[in-house]
Design a protein around this nucleic acid. Sequence first.
DNA 1: GGCCCTCGAGTTCA
DNA 2: CTCGAGGGCC
Length: 712
Amino acid sequence: MSEETIAIEDLNAEQAARELARLAAEIGDHDRRYHTEDAPVVSDAEYDALKRRNLAIEARFPDLKRADSPSDRVGGGILEKFEKVTHRVAMLSLDNAFSEEDVRDFVERVRRFLKLDTQAPLAFTAEPKIDGLSLALRYEEGKLVTAATRGDGAVGENVTANAKTISDIPHVLSGTVPEVIEVRGEVYMTKSDFAELNRRQEAEGKQTYVNPRNTAAGSLRQLDTSITASRPLKFFAYAWGDTSGLPADTQLGVVECFAAWGFVVNPLMKRFETVEGLLEQYRLIESERAELAYDIDGVVYKVDDLSLQQRLGFVSRSPRWAIAHKFPAEKATTVLKDIEIQVGRTGALSPVARLEPVTVGGVVVSNATLHNEDYIAGIGSDGQPIREGRDLRIGDTVTIYRAGDVIPKVMDVDLSRRPKDSAQYVFPETCPACGSPATREVNEKTGRMDSVRRCTGSLICPAQAVEKLKHFVSRNAFDIDGFGAKQAEAFYNAELVKNPAEIFTLQTRDEASLTRLKNRDGWGEQSAANLFDAIEARREIDLHRFIYALGIRHVGEGNAKILARVYHSARGFVDAMEAAGDHESEAWNDLVNIDGIGPIVAQALAEFFAEPHNAAIVEQLLEEVQPLDAEQVATDTAFSGKTIVFTGSLERMSRDEAKAMAERLGAKTAGSVSKKTDLVVAGPGAGSKLKKASELGIEVIDEDEWFTRIGE
DNA sequence: GGCCCTCGAGTTCA
DNA sequence: CTCGAGGGCC
């Protein structure tokens, strides 16, 4: 295309029109080869360059845009980002079974819950668990309106345009369908399509992909729909979410309807009346696993009768009526090259195994956690030997597996291949970063030694300082744009930011520091200005984020929110914590009486603020940032300043809601009844607290009375 | 004292 | 994601 590649600004209208026509034909040709013949003749980069040039010319000569412009073509849209979609029915995960015994237990649990005796009939479905990514397809009046990824189960991403490029996904359902139905299933890539894709990548000298699952996930999350369209994705339908009415009353029946509507359903899904039937199907699927066209990682069993499913309901995040029987985790053998000690934000010394890289479950693993020193020595957390006392040594040949198919773990050691000169690993008793003694605390409650060894140099340890800084800027804390973990470490090492307060004085620092900042690799005036803007934007911050960001031991997001709610303002919180250093004080008493805060957490807070260095940094921070007071609470209600205890099971609200409600009305909530308690709201099943309340002569009301009093 | 649940902390790879 | 610890409750 040598002579045609005239700079766009030099094109005249006639040349532009000619080139647009040429581009339309050429891009259309590539699309055809790519999508239908699966045999592209240009690289993705060249193809993208053509599309960009087409877009640029259209931008300069909008009137010349052709009716068949490639930029309008379906499968050619490029999105900025995916929109969020809130699932109307949460996409839950499944409980796992790892042995036949687990499966028998599961069936027993279901029977017990339904109060069925062992003879009563109870049917389950069994189907392979596809190793892909789940997708929810919402159809209204038979038309596909939204496709959403699972996300965190509650909120996913809208990938409708991409889902529409998958041929297994009907745009319109055939036959009689409910007005609204959300069909759920798994997007996957077959093993042979994956291999073919990699062959193509290799032929073009491009990077190859690691495994079909990740590739399928990556393909579905492309902002450029034409890329998704070019990938050979497939879909199995096997479940549902929100619906105006189901077409059948059994699991299998509904899935059969899916097939009738035009979905592809897995042929290995079957119905069984007995546990033995399920287990036989498991063994059958396992024996055929290698020959299947797609990757699977287990077999899913579900109660077939939907009315029983409904009765069974859910436990925390998974349905009580289904379980995933996982295949044994893939194992691999490799050499433990070294043991490195990392120092965490709280000073925890955690050993990490450096491994000879090895492929496990489709990914190359070169690091694995070793938990703590007892794990290396072969002692379990209960004091019992694991690996029958075989310890791990540098140079050992070890087996590793990926727990839950994600986190690699070192499982066992092959003693027959242990080098003769190997020595028992000696866990350091001083911090590798600062040299301070590293000790194991004794748990006062149980008298047992803590499983983690901690560096005691919290104030001088550079490793802890860096980790604290990373925590401070992390996503749920200050979340400063362009100041992530990597920058935190770099800025610390460059001595530009040594503690959180210094982030906010960066811009007003002396000339020399600013020059050093701007002269850093890849930095300049503009990047520095962007960073300063991002920092400015965070000078106002929610109080709970502020508390969480301090990185106090035992104070995570949950406890930070509790504290923010109780103390309202940063000043109030800090003053109370400093006063709580005295265990005789009212401040301490109030603190340990907060529902959710016990003596350990209270002690950690008091200790943090008793340390002058910490207190000083908090004060410096408060000069730089303005934590926003937590939700204003009323001071003029009947409950202002009162301490309320909720006990027993509450039926019209969750305990958290109840507490939030009381606190909005100006009350304090506590976990236990004392003579400071003003009111006890007791639901059914209240025990000792109710008794104590009557002993102390404290007023007790039930939930209904509570709602009456607050006027709802 | 023991059981159950939630929260915190640490970790891997694409 | 998983493990262990802390907290609440019986």
